[in-house]
């Protein structure tokens, strides 16, 4: 499973990101991530953004699994409770990315 995570948006829009391939990641980390993805139910979800919200942080996931590629975006006010641990996992590990130009 390959997961691409990006955090964008916000009044001070820092682009943070992390790409993880569970096949090459450290075993414990890989197992934890697989569990978080499964428990979140994210592969069956559509994205959500609160109408009228401005300057909120956005969380983008692209997950490549044996089910195909699933892309989804939540804003910080619309993250389903089950997905919050997954967002926390990536937030704690994501690094600053320079915007591509």
């Amino acid at each position: 499973m390959k997961i691409t995570f990006r955090r964008s948006g916000g009044f001070a829009p820092r682009l943070l990101g992390l790409d993880i391939d569970t096949d090459s990641a450290e075993a414990a980390e890989s197992e934890k991530l697989r569990r978080l993805v499964e428990e979140s139910g994210i592969l069956g979800m559509s994205g959500a953004q609160q109408k009228g919200a401005r300057d909120v942080n956005l969380y983008h996931f692209e997950i490549e699994s044996d089910q195909g590629i699933h892309k989804v975006t939540f804003d910080q006010l619309s993250i389903p409770d089950t997905v919050k641990p997954l967002v926390k996992f990536f937030n704690e590990r994501a690094r600053d990315l320079m915007p591509e130009t």
Binding site: G10, F11, A12, R14, Q50, K51, G52, A53, R54, D55, V56, N57, L77
Partner: peptide, 28 residues
């Protein structure tokens, strides 16, 4: 590290005190 409008109210963080010191400024 943020301030935002949610359609009804304005919300302000205090910043991480590492990069951002405050978001409560007049122009913000």
């Amino acid at each position: 590290d943020n301030a935002f409008w949610d359609g009804e109210m304005m919300t302000f963080g205090d910043g991480d005190q590492d990069i951002f010191s405050t978001f409560v400024l007049l122009d913000v």
